[in-house]
């Protein structure tokens, strides 16, 4: 029965381990004790220089896409606010209150054809309802200078004109007839009130 008490046995012990591990074949063992699991390679791949470049490229792409989205959102918000302002301008022009007695010529124009968005339709109830109740809307109902588009012709406002003509020809609008002569003194004195009140003389 061999023992390992002497130095020679210790040397044999060293040789036993050395040869056992150094003389292994290149192929993996049948039991698979010397084959690492696939997750080792997966972990290595995550740290490879190529993978780092791919991650950096993906990071830059994500930043670029996020920048485009932010820019598109800001442009959309700007256009939406600009379109709403044009809608309010158009509604203010159409619903501007008219003073038939002033005789001022109003030009009632169609909404601007620049409005291309579906939300720009001035006849939509949402816009009309808001324009009737919003305090901002009242501020915007002041007469604004309209800028007729090139080639646009003001629509004839015959109703307003007819109303103005009828008002001018009304009986109460005609100048009063002069007083009869008997009410006037020869000296051009002011008319005597007493003569206008005959019941007092009686």
């Amino acid at each position: 029965m061999p023992t390992m008490e002497d130095p020679k046995e210790l040397t044999q012990l060293d040789a036993l381990f050395r040869h056992a591990f150094e003389d292994l074949p290149d192929t993996p063992s049948a039991s698979g004790w010397d084959v690492p699991s696939p997750k080792v390679w997966e972990g290595i791949q995550a740290h490879l220089p190529g993978a780092f470049r791919v991650r950096v490229r993906r990071l830059y792409s994500s930043i670029a896409i996020a920048g485009l989205l932010v820019t598109a959102t800001l442009v959309g918000i700007y256009l939406a606010f600009q379109g709403r302002t044009e809608i309010l301008d158009a509604n203010t022009q159409v619903n501007r209150p008219l003073d038939p007695l002033s005789g001022h010529e109003y030009s009632v124009e169609a909404p601007s054809p620049v409005l291309t968005s579906p939300s720009a339709n001035p006849t939509r109830p949402r816009v009309a309802r808001r324009s009737a109740t919003s305090p901002k809307r009242e501020n915007l109902q002041q007469p604004l200078s309209s800028m007729p588009l090139p080639g646009s012709v003001p629509a004839p406002n015959t109703t307003i004109r007819r109303q103005v003509e009828e008002l001018r020809s009304a009986s109460w609008a005609q100048p009063l007839s002069p007083l009869p002569q008997r009410f006037l003194s020869p000296t051009d004195k002011p008319p005597v009130i007493r003569e206008l009140l005959p019941f007092r003389q009686q």
Binding site: L24, D26, T27, D34, P36, W41, P49, R53
Partner: peptide
């Protein structure tokens, strides 16, 4: 050159003998 194919091949060639080393 950053070739993934060569990286994989190098790992396949040396993974078993190096695993024996670190196992000890």
């Amino acid at each position: 050159n950053g070739s993934p194919t060569h990286q994989r091949a190098l790992y396949q060639k040396y993974s078993v003998p190096m695993f024996r080393v670190v196992l000890r």
